[in-house]
Design a protein around this nucleic acid. Structure first.
Lengths: 274, 274
DNA sequence: AACCAAGTTTCACATATTGGAACCAGCTAG
DNA sequence: CTAGCTGGTTCCAATATGTGAAACTTGGTT
């Protein structure tokens, strides 16, 4: 029936297809027409149509009748809020990120590995007010970012293989490690050293240090990075921050371990104000 | 064939059920056991089980084998990022919120109406760094919040009816409007006045002014509020901010109108494979 | 009027979903 | 140790659901 299609994507019946379509719509990054999706050739006309309808009236997609196009719906935002609070590292990490941010005056990212990609779950922006979802929920490549490499370096062989296979190795800059071999060599170095650099591998001028967040038994549960520009600082200067970052990572890891959900149920009214 | 019947809830086949389950899990606000969900009695054992599995291996749910419990998964966060950027008012409103926040030194909320509830999509916090998802994606009641009432007041009769029906009218404080009648009277006043107050109706000590964001033809597309505490300020003082807020709301509305998605397609990286 | 492309609906067919019931731990109590 | 649990997983026939080619409708062009 099925052999090595297992891993990633669709397969599970109707629900799987529906979610696939959700991804397709979200993936476009802008409202999409029925025909555009159809053109992707992944589903026959009628099926696609029906599924879109279902998703739409479930609020997972929003249909703009004027422009006749679909976009991911707000129900996702509601659900994601809940996901973020429960399943991400962000809530436990928050105070630690704040502290670290106060110490080093640079941009900080908290990321997790998801389907071979880096998923940013929180951020502290040196200056200027934080952007909300615009950053959390964002995904990026693993093979050419500090956090991505930091996490990959501490995966075990089997996991790593899967993740490496999913990398696109697109050459973003002249420094991008654009092959599995180059990447693996780099990962070995990172593993030995204990932390990763991003030497303008993803964006020109942007450099960073990143450390994995390891839970008991060295399981990778996330990564933490401090980012800056080549103009403002140097790799050596960033490297000097490693002890602090490591400390923060350790604290987060420790807390993540013990973090059991408070037995109180949900829905009350929480609001603003500290 | 139909519009305003059946509305939200489940019904659409398997996909609908799956999404229902997603809501159930998310709704608990903490990892849930199979049996807890089962106890809800909405689905027969085997069905629930299968659906949970499907959702899990699609990444919509995360299963913690140690604690044997399900929580909303990270795939939702990814999807929501996209939803937030495309379908919410937040991206267009951002600069205007920043400006408003700078002027009035208080907490600002940007909300939309979703399934009869208030869905917060962005926020500016007077002081202290913004919390990310913790606020965006959060939902709250419509009948006892400034933004909720501001939006309801400008719905047309048919829409309003639907929304009112979904209110729980739980009495949060002694000021809460706890009946459809009281609410409707208030809404009429708000409609006439052009803006809404929250007089400690949701949380004791918390007051706010809110204005709807109306697009061409007076369609409600969101709401904007300035919140503070009874100690720090008064309703009259908040009322004095109305012109500024109205201006901001108008700007957001105008921009939302013209906002067509930049023709550039999805970000440089990969599509949906790799 | 004739055409075309985009979107919507139909319908005979088969596959995916269903859910009662049986099954399998792992526990606790008798 | 055995019976009786509770919580979770698997079977499988019955059938409700989802499928998709093709027909149809809409609205815009020439």
């Amino acid at each position: 029936m099925n052999e090595l299609q297992s891993a990633a994507a669709s397969g599970d019946g109707t629900v799987g297809k529906a979610l696939d379509i959700l991804d397709m719509v979200a993936g476009h990054g802008r409202p999409v027409r029925f025909s555009e999706l159809l053109a992707e050739g992944r589903f026959p006309k009628a099926t696609l149509y029906r599924l879109l309808q279902t998703l739409t009236n479930q609020g997972m997609l929003a249909f703009d009748p004027e422009r006749q196009s679909y976009a991911p719906g707000m129900r996702l935002v509601r659900l994601a809020h809940s996901a973020w609070r429960q399943s991400s590292l962000a809530p436990v990490a928050r105070p630690h990120l704040d502290a670290l941010a106060a110490e080093v005056g640079e941009t900080i990212h908290l990321a997790q590995l998801d389907t071979g990609q880096v998923l940013y779950v929180d951020k502290r922006n040196a200056r200027q007010p934080v952007e909300m979802f615009s950053q959390a929920g964002k995904v990026g490549p693993a093979y050419c970012t500090g956090v991505g490499k930091a996490m990959m370096a501490f995966l075990d062989a089997a996991e790593l293989e899967g993740v490496v296979q999913r990398q696109s190795f697109h050459r973003f800059t002249e420094h991008t490690l654009a092959s599995p071999e180059a990447l693996k060599a780099e990962l070995a170095a990172i593993r030995a050293r204990g932390y990763a650099f991003d030497r303008e591998e993803h964006e020109p001028g942007i450099i960073c240090v990143a450390l994995p967040i390891l839970s008991r038994g060295d399981r990778v549960i996330g990564a933490l990075s401090v980012t800056s520009t080549k103009e403002r600082t140097t790799l050596a200067a960033l490297e000097a921050l490693v002890p602090k970052i490591r400390e923060t990572a350790a604290r987060i890891a420790a807390e993540a371990e013990s973090w059991r959900f408070p037995e109180q149920d949900n829905r009350g009214g929480r609001s603003c104000l500290a």
